[in-house]
Design a protein around this nucleic acid. Sequence first.
DNA 1: AGGGTTTGACGTACACTGTACATATACCTA
DNA 2: TAGGTATATGTACAGTGTACGTCAAACCCT
Lengths: 227, 227
Amino acid sequence: MYVVKGFAMIEVEMGATTPREPLHRDRIVAAALELADSDGVDALSMRNLARRLGFEVMSLYNHVANKDELLSLMVDAVAAEIDGPPPDAAPLAAIRAITISTHDVLVRHPWAPELWQHYLPGPARTRHMDDLLRLFDESGLAPALAHHGFHAVSNHVLGYTLQQLGMDMGGDDPEVRAREYVAGISEVDHPHMVAHVRQHIDGDTSSSFELVLDLILDGLVRLDAGA
Amino acid sequence: MYVVKGFAMIEVEMGATTPREPLHRDRIVAAALELADSDGVDALSMRNLARRLGFEVMSLYNHVANKDELLSLMVDAVAAEIDGPPPDAAPLAAIRAITISTHDVLVRHPWAPELWQHYLPGPARTRHMDDLLRLFDESGLAPALAHHGFHAVSNHVLGYTLQQLGMDMGGDDPEVRAREYVAGISEVDHPHMVAHVRQHIDGDTSSSFELVLDLILDGLVRLDAGA
DNA sequence: AGGGTTTGACGTACACTGTACATATACCTA
DNA sequence: TAGGTATATGTACAGTGTACGTCAAACCCT
């Protein structure tokens, strides 16, 4: 199969030619997502991406201003995967659901949390944030508390996911990394650290994501009631 | 001033030569910190760093395995700036103080939060984490709650700081960026988002860092008491 | 139908990155 | 004095993002 230059044809079967699917923004972003998901964001170079799509590098620049814009579009594509608020749920319950979905999505795209704050929100993330803010407004919390609550919840998702994924980053098995780490530090100097990592390795402490989320949400209501 | 090749001399004043300070790990890391603080972590290239130090690129590699190790050392140097626990404070108060100090330090080095989770903790960060874990152990909270509390607090610092610095990232004035962003979205589609950003621009909502921190800490003791 | 304009793909080229490798010199020890 | 070790330097290479110019195809308007 070869490419007729300048005409975007590929030869198929016995000489018959069909126009190959043209390059478009969405296809580029989708391919970039796949590549980042499977090989890591470090493996996402413009050349790499172009090769995977079957085009030359500079062709990408007809649809994307530069790599930064591409990354920004990728982040928004991830944001688009987040569930909207469940139709008939109380505001705080909806916030809870949205937040858990956000966490799920971010874990599916482990490269995304690092870039989450790096770019201005695109349409999908703007939509998502607006939903969340609306729910806080409708929650009955005092306006200032709603404002802080929005940040508290946002911080929690981002911070927790980054922390959770940080261990996976090295490429190796996270448990192996944890063991190597704990083997490299002195148990007499840092007994609590060693014990804590051992707990993680043994897996006898479940995920604290939802627990802390509820801690924050309950704390907000309680603060509001006390005021 | 010129460099006598292979002899590490610099000419000063009238031909007198003094041996220039030799290159050492700590000097390299310190210079890298300065460079990243002033010009951003993107401007930190090995060539750039070497030039600033007055050496050639490859000389750095006699003291640092590769750029990744350098970045990891930089993160730990930042961790070393965090205050230890105040000598005679109750555990939870000490946790509060440490956490606020962590936030201060991270803000001083805006490039650091992005790398915070990227590398295994070095000695300073290990020390810091061990302190924090010890304080949670001594806090009287149930072990499982202490475990979760440690993560909740860690997530909060990281998430909040990232969020706070995200706006500054673009290099431009964050207020200008915020205005541009809000000008680019539809107020009828996203009224809550627009209102929220306006609140930030007008600065009439104070930092929620300590508020949410207390929310978490208070929530932990309350959960513990209820159990 | 024909000519002008616009579009998208391609190729070349450049500055810059991290770093492997070889060399050269200084210092220390036997 | 000889030899090994540590450090600084120089050269070189593969890979990066992307500016710029070329060119054929597609579209549009007479």
